[in-house]
């Protein structure tokens, strides 16, 4: 018996160490990016400065000069914020109606909404360019990017909200109805306070997806509404010349989102599996 306990203690240390090692390996590319961002461009490609170097903030201080970072960051922040707000504005009433007054078709509508998400973007690339450039003349505007980001994330937002709203007992909403509260009042005063956590995590996740989007934000913009994805993609191959400054701008582009992501890892499962894994 003692031998078994001994062995399992050794086993437990072994598995713990292994888990740590694997986690560090997985995190290493991100660490390396942040690490490189503190090297000068010259140091970043010298093997003798691989680990030992004089850290510098110059890459961060020169981000505006080198890449016009803040303009792109501002565009990313504006489009992602408004797309998220708009998605909630349209999505909350819809999910509310579906959760508390389901009809025969609710399930089909939900599944259909999800199916729009599965349409390959490339298939409609030209029609979208054509419509927005020649016809509506909203190509490369914040409005267009907000609209597109909202539309591609709306199905996921509605699904998430729906699964959260369904957990609220129907009686509470019914009670509000008895008291003669208006529909808007029900949503604002009863539903949202009750499902606050769900709404917040839906917003957070939608924001992350908007920020990271790399197809439409690149294809439907040139300069005015260009986001960070476009900035990074435009500097794809510096051939080693600018590893330092490129790492800095990349770190600045993903840093806030990775940290936000840490807070909603649990909700991610709900948001991306559409409630199919519990």
């Amino acid at each position: 018996m003692a031998a078994v306990a001994q062995q399992s203690r050794f086993g437990s240390v072994f598995w713990t160490v292994l888990a740590w090692v694997v986690a560090l390996i997985f995190f290493f590319p991100i660490f390396w990016m942040v690490f490189t961002s503190f090297k000068t461009d010259a140091d970043a490609v010298k093997p003798e400065h691989l680990f030992l170097f004089t850290p510098t903030l110059e890459n961060y201080l020169n981000m505006t000069e080198n890449y016009d970072y803040w303009r792109f960051a501002k565009n990313s922040a504006i489009t992602a914020t408004f797309a998220t707000l708009f998605a909630l504005f349209v999505g909350v009433p819809c999910a509310y109606a579906m959760a508390f007054n389901p009809s025969r078709h609710t399930k089909d509508i939900l599944v259909w909404m999800l199916s729009t998400k599965m349409l390959p973007a490339a298939a409609v690339l030209y029609p979208m360019t054509f419509l927005t450039k020649n016809f509506l003349q909203i190509f490369d505007t914040h409005f267009l990017i907000v609209l597109v980001l909202c539309l591609i994330n709306l199905p996921i937002a509605i699904w998430m909200l729906f699964t959260y709203f369904k957990e609220i007992p129907k009686e509470i909403i019914e009670a509000g109805k008895m008291d003669g509260v208006s529909t808007w009042g029900e949503i604002k005063d009863i539903l949202i306070p009750l499902a606050w956590g769900g709404v917040a995590s839906t917003a957070l996740l939608t924001f992350i997806f908007c920020w990271n989007e790399a197809y439409w934000t690149v294809r439907l913009t040139t300069t005015e509404a260009a986001t960070l994805s476009k900035l990074i993609e435009g500097n794809r191959a510096p051939e080693g010349l600018f590893f330092g400054r490129l790492s800095a701008v990349s770190t600045a582009a993903v840093g806030p989102i990775v940290v936000l992501g840490w807070f909603c890892q649990k909700q991610l499962v709900r948001g991306l599996t559409f409630g199919a894994v519990k």
Binding site: A19, A23, P29, M33, I232, L246, V254, G261, W262
Partner: peptide
């Protein structure tokens, strides 16, 4: 908890940065 945070992080890196980071720095 920390191991989980480290493991999940790559998922939130934007695809453009992911590709630039891997193909250049790594």
């Amino acid at each position: 908890g920390i191991v989980r945070v480290l493991l999940i992080s790559p998922f939130f890196v934007m695809p453009a940065v992911n590709a630039v980071l891997w193909i250049n720095m790594i």
